[in-house]
Simulated scan of single mutants.
Amino acid sequence: MTVAIKLSKYQLYGLLKNYHWMVKEIQRIDHYLTETDFQGTAQYGIEATMPKAQGVVGKALENEVTRRVEKSKRLQKYIEEVNLINERIPLVTDEKEKVVLDCLLDGLSLTAISKHLGISRQQVTDIREKIIDTLAKN
């Protein structure tokens, strides 16, 4: 079940602008968090029962865990923001607006979109404003 979240036009503009790199960052962080670098050595006999030094290694491990937790929080934030845009994409029904939205989500600049479509940069800006108005209606 999705919850309708009211976003300002300014927030939507930022999400559209950042969408492309957030998707890349989601992939990168997810890959980082799913890999493990544990290189422990099994111990046997009396050494296995002896207390281990917690000094530098313990602090380094604690710092890495804290860093991963922060990455995980950032990952969740990016996923939520990307999903907010993805849930609103079907609201855009005009074909030219769909193309411009797709180009924006792919990370193309307004100038690149204008060259791609053969229209002026101002026309692309106007279409982007219409898209943001449409996405903000939810």
Rank of each mutant, 00 (worst) to 15 (best):
R121V: 12
D106A: 15
R121L: 05
K73T: 09
V100G: 04
L104F: 03
V82D: 04
N63E: 15
L61N: 11
I29A: 05
T125G: 00
K77T: 13
Q123S: 03
A42G: 00
T111C: 04
V82M: 06
T2N: 04
V92S: 09
T125P: 00
R121K: 15
K24L: 13
V99T: 08
E70K: 15
A4R: 13
Q39K: 12
K73I: 15
N63L: 14
I29C: 05
V3P: 03
Y19A: 10
T2H: 01
G55K: 10
T41H: 05
H20E: 11
D30Y: 06
V124A: 04
H31G: 09
D102L: 09
I132F: 06
A42Y: 10
I119E: 01
Q27V: 08
L33H: 06
I119P: 00
L84W: 02
K130E: 13
L33W: 08
L12Y: 00
M22T: 00
L75E: 02
L110E: 07
L61M: 07
Q76L: 14
L61C: 05
A112F: 03
K17M: 13
T34A: 11
D94C: 04
H31D: 12
I113G: 06
N18F: 10
K71E: 15
L110A: 02
N138I: 13
Q54S: 08
E47C: 04
I119G: 01
A60R: 12
G14K: 12
K71Q: 13
G118D: 06
V99E: 14
T93R: 13
I127Y: 15
R67Q: 11
E64L: 06
Y78E: 08
E64K: 11
F38I: 09
I131T: 02
R68T: 04
Q122Y: 02
D30K: 11
E95D: 11
L84P: 01
V100R: 10
I85A: 05
K6N: 09
I113T: 04
R68S: 10
Q39P: 00
I85R: 01
V57A: 12
T34L: 13
K130N: 14
K59G: 00
K96C: 03
N138G: 07
N18G: 11
V92M: 09
E47R: 08
K73N: 10
Y32R: 08
E25S: 05
N63R: 10
N18A: 14
Y44F: 14
Q27Y: 01
L75F: 06
S72T: 00
T134Q: 03
Q27E: 14
L7F: 07
G118P: 03
K17N: 11
K96D: 07
A42D: 02
T34K: 15
P51Y: 08
